Deep mutational scan, measured.
Amino acid sequence: EVTIKANLIFANGSTQTAEFKGTFEKATSEAYAYADTLKKDNGEYTVDVADKGYTLNIKFAG
């Protein structure tokens, strides 16, 4: 089991951190699915992958 950390960075400057656990593939998939649910209210997003994929910096356009 691994932990994927998602740093969520919103257009208004606020930030939030979420963690997803499971296999690497499952946790990564859940992180992207979570970002997709936030897209409606926060706009499109870009992802900067860090720490060999264990950290995702997800920035929303607003």
Rank of each mutant, 00 (worst) to 15 (best):
E1K: 04
E1M: 07
E1A: 07
E1N: 07
V2D: 06
V2L: 07
V2K: 05
V2P: 04
V2T: 11
T3K: 07
T3S: 12
T3M: 12
T3H: 09
I4F: 02
I4V: 12
I4T: 01
K5Y: 14
K5V: 13
A6N: 01
A6E: 03
A6F: 02
A6Q: 03
N7T: 13
N7G: 02
N7I: 15
N7K: 12
N7D: 04
L8S: 02
L8F: 15
L8K: 00
L8Q: 01
L8A: 05
L8V: 11
I9L: 13
I9A: 08
I9R: 10
I9G: 06
I9C: 05
I9S: 11
I9Q: 11
F10L: 09
F10Y: 15
F10K: 04
F10C: 04
A11W: 08
A11K: 12
A11E: 10
A11M: 10
A11I: 11
N12D: 13
N12C: 07
N12K: 08
N12I: 08
N12V: 05
N12M: 07
N12W: 06
N12Y: 07
G13D: 07
G13P: 01
S14F: 13
S14C: 05
S14I: 13
T15A: 15
T15D: 08
T15E: 08
T15I: 14
T15F: 13
T15Q: 14
T15M: 13
Q16W: 08
Q16R: 15
Q16M: 14
Q16F: 11
T17N: 11
T17S: 10
T17I: 14
T17H: 14
T17A: 10
T17W: 13
T17F: 12
A18I: 15
A18V: 14
A18H: 15
A18C: 05
A18G: 07
A18N: 14
A18M: 15
E19Y: 13
E19S: 12
F20Y: 09
F20T: 01
F20I: 03
F20L: 02
F20Q: 01
K21F: 15
K21N: 15
K21C: 05
K21G: 08
K21H: 15
K21R: 11
K21V: 15
K21I: 14
G22K: 01
G22I: 01
G22C: 02
T23N: 12
T23D: 13
T23R: 03
T23F: 08
T23I: 11
T23G: 07
T23E: 15
F24V: 10
F24A: 07
E25A: 07
E25N: 08
E25S: 07
E25M: 06
K26P: 02
K26I: 15
K26R: 05
K26T: 14
A27K: 01
A27P: 01
A27C: 04
A27M: 02
A27E: 01
A27N: 01
T28R: 08
S29Q: 14
S29D: 13
S29W: 08
S29K: 10
S29I: 11
E30F: 08
E30L: 10
E30K: 06
E30H: 10
E30D: 14
E30V: 06
E30M: 14
A31D: 00
A31C: 05
Y32A: 03
Y32C: 04
Y32K: 07
Y32W: 09
Y32R: 08
Y32N: 03
Y32P: 00
Y32L: 15
Y32S: 03
A33E: 13
A33Q: 10
A33I: 12
Y34L: 10
Y34Q: 03
Y34R: 04
Y34E: 02
Y34K: 04
A35H: 00
A35D: 00
A35E: 00
D36L: 04
D36E: 15
D36T: 05
T37D: 09
T37R: 11
L38E: 03
L38Q: 10
L38A: 04
K39D: 02
K39C: 04
K39V: 11
K39S: 07
K39I: 09
K39T: 08
K39N: 04
K39R: 12
K40Q: 12
K40V: 08
D41Y: 07
D41S: 15
N42L: 10
N42I: 06
N42P: 01
N42R: 11
N42F: 15
N42Q: 09
G43I: 03
G43N: 03
G43W: 03
G43F: 03
G43L: 03
E44L: 15
E44Y: 08
E44D: 11
E44K: 07
E44I: 10
E44H: 14
E44T: 12
Y45H: 02
Y45V: 02
Y45T: 02
Y45F: 10
Y45D: 00
Y45N: 01
T46V: 12
T46G: 06
T46K: 14
T46E: 11
T46L: 09
T46A: 09
T46Y: 12
V47S: 06
V47I: 08
V47M: 05
V47A: 07
V47T: 10
D48N: 14
D48H: 10
V49Q: 08
V49H: 08
V49M: 13
V49F: 12
V49P: 07
V49E: 08
A50R: 13
A50N: 08
A50M: 10
A50E: 13
D51A: 05
D51G: 05
D51C: 04
D51Q: 05
D51S: 05
K52T: 10
K52D: 11
K52Y: 15
K52Q: 14
K52W: 08
K52H: 13
K52G: 13
K52M: 11
K52N: 13
K52E: 14
G53E: 03
G53A: 04
G53P: 04
G53K: 03
G53Y: 03
G53N: 04
Y54H: 13
T55Q: 09
T55M: 11
L56T: 01
L56D: 00
N57R: 05
N57G: 04
N57Y: 11
N57I: 15
I58S: 00
I58C: 03
I58H: 00
I58E: 00
I58Q: 00
I58L: 06
I58Y: 06
K59D: 04
K59I: 14
K59P: 01
K59S: 09
K59N: 14
K59F: 09
K59W: 08
K59M: 09
F60N: 00
F60M: 02
F60K: 00
A61N: 14
A61F: 10
A61T: 15
A61Y: 14
A61P: 12
A61C: 05
A61R: 09
G62Q: 09
G62F: 07
G62I: 07
G62H: 10
G62L: 07
G62K: 09
